[in-house]
Design a protein around this nucleic acid. Structure first.
Lengths: 258, 258
DNA sequence: AAGTGGTCTAGACCACTCG
DNA sequence: GAGTGGTCTAGACCACTTG
């Protein structure tokens, strides 16, 4: 806390400089789990910022999950490790890279098709009748091991020339962001447990009726417009799901009593 | 917006009264998806609160996921439905009730045991050597259909007389909260896809080698202390997982560019 | 140029926890 | 009673978007 020199002319907000500094102290162990962080008053006085700015720094640590506040007591370092790889909206590519594996994909097919009304994909993407979608079917591979089969549908209107510009071995999400400015920020996902059919077992090189995950995912951009509908099958013997549940952002003055 | 009378002497914070009012307008359709919410200025002037208070109301809507802000443009109603039942930290009981089913449980066994060091449960709960845990094994039932088998471990030190006071047919989480003041606020969960063994298939009344989910869950209270370790097996034909991914709480001034 | 959200200040009163 | 976080005020300057 002492050694921090705030740069008051930086474009980086003061509260963010403070947040980063505290985060560093937590990671380095200078601030230990369960111990109180400096109070709003203390930060305010020592760094000569207003209390609201100090408060914003502390609250941002809370919403990151590395701290928690108790009225009348203080703000404390959480014992929960943040650094682990929990599930976010991310492509297979990002997920595998975060996990230390080298991902790539084998293209099975890619096409432009008109989805009949009533089909799941048309429902999920709110397509107009007979609106065209781009459909890409790929085998997802990590470190030369086939992990899953994935079929992605995107409304053609959003990315008309995707099939010309997209190298199907690379990350679709990165391509969408770089070329079309489409940033997926949220996804709804249904996971089922099932058995591999003959097609899947051949592509994934596993015995028929092996246990598999069946994913159905709809992805959204900021504001909630659906831009992607994906169905995929992943190997149960090589793939597992890691979730972190809870951690409500309690903007509820009751503090979340139930 | 017009008809709102703020109660300035209520214990309910002003920002929360405003938030609730806007939430109602969104749910009723008076404020439609994609349309701008009243600006901070507008709320501030019309309701005669400071701009920071108006801002807090709007930001709380953002962190609930029902709105999003764009610098220089405004704050808009998100198209994403919030009302759906997404996965939170909740007991089987709560999950089934939210889904409209009547849950109960059949006790298979309950005991106090000393967990050998090195075992998974001891690791997850950070138990001292030879520390005792309470272990409860139950079949989870929804509307008379057996859904899964669940084995829960809790450090005995936290709830010494749990086995006397807990009706195993009811919600464990509710009992922990009511009797011991233990509020589980977060959980880490690993999900695997597998096949039912003979024991599980008998208890769940499904064929052997049916597809199942295998859950391993560690639950935490505020501050990150682990209080529960659960392993469970759920039917793949009757149970599915619904997740909402993403929705970062961006306390990052960059706005989350990647 | 006008409107918007993002940040910041320097105060204030309150309810809560703890010694 | 001293210290803490929760709420609130009435201003301010900035960067950004849009017409």
């Amino acid at each position: 806390m002492d050694s921090l020199n705030l740069d008051r002319h930086s474009v980086v907000p003061l509260y963010f400089q403070i947040q980063q500094h505290l985060l560093q102290d937590i990671r380095s162990g200078k601030l230990q789990a369960g111990k109180p962080l400096p109070s709003e008053e203390a930060i305010s006085k020592r760094l000569r910022v207003s209390r609201m700015t100090a408060r914003q720094a502390l609250k941002s640590l809370c919403s990151l999950g590395v701290a928690y506040s108790q009225r009348g007591k203080g703000t404390f370092v959480s014992e929960i490790k943040l650094e682990k790889n929990f599930r976010q909206v991310q492509s297979f590519t990002q997920e595998m890279e975060a996990h230390g594996s080298r991902p790539h994909s084998k293209l099975i097919s890619s096409e432009v098709v008109a989805v009949p009304a009533g089909e799941e994909a048309a429902e999920a993407l709110h397509l107009a009748p007979e609106e065209e979608v781009i459909r890409i079917r790929r085998v997802r591979v990590a470190d030369a091991v086939p992990m899953g089969v994935e079929t992605t549908c995107l409304p053609r209107a959003l990315c008309p020339d995707l099939l010309d510009k997209f190298d199907p071995r690379l990350s679709l999400y990165r391509t969408l962001a770089q070329i079309y400015g489409i940033h997926i920020v949220q996804a709804d996902e249904v996971v089922e447990a099932g058995l591999a059919d003959s097609d899947e077992s051949r592509l994934l090189r596993i015995p028929k009726k092996s246990p598999v995950f069946l994913f159905t995912r709809t992805s959204y951009i900021q504001g909630g417009k659906a831009v992607e509908y994906v169905k995929s099958t992943f190997r149960g013997d090589r793939y597992k799901i890691t979730n972190r549940l809870g951690q409500f952002s309690n903007d509820n003055p009751s503090g979340g009593e139930a």
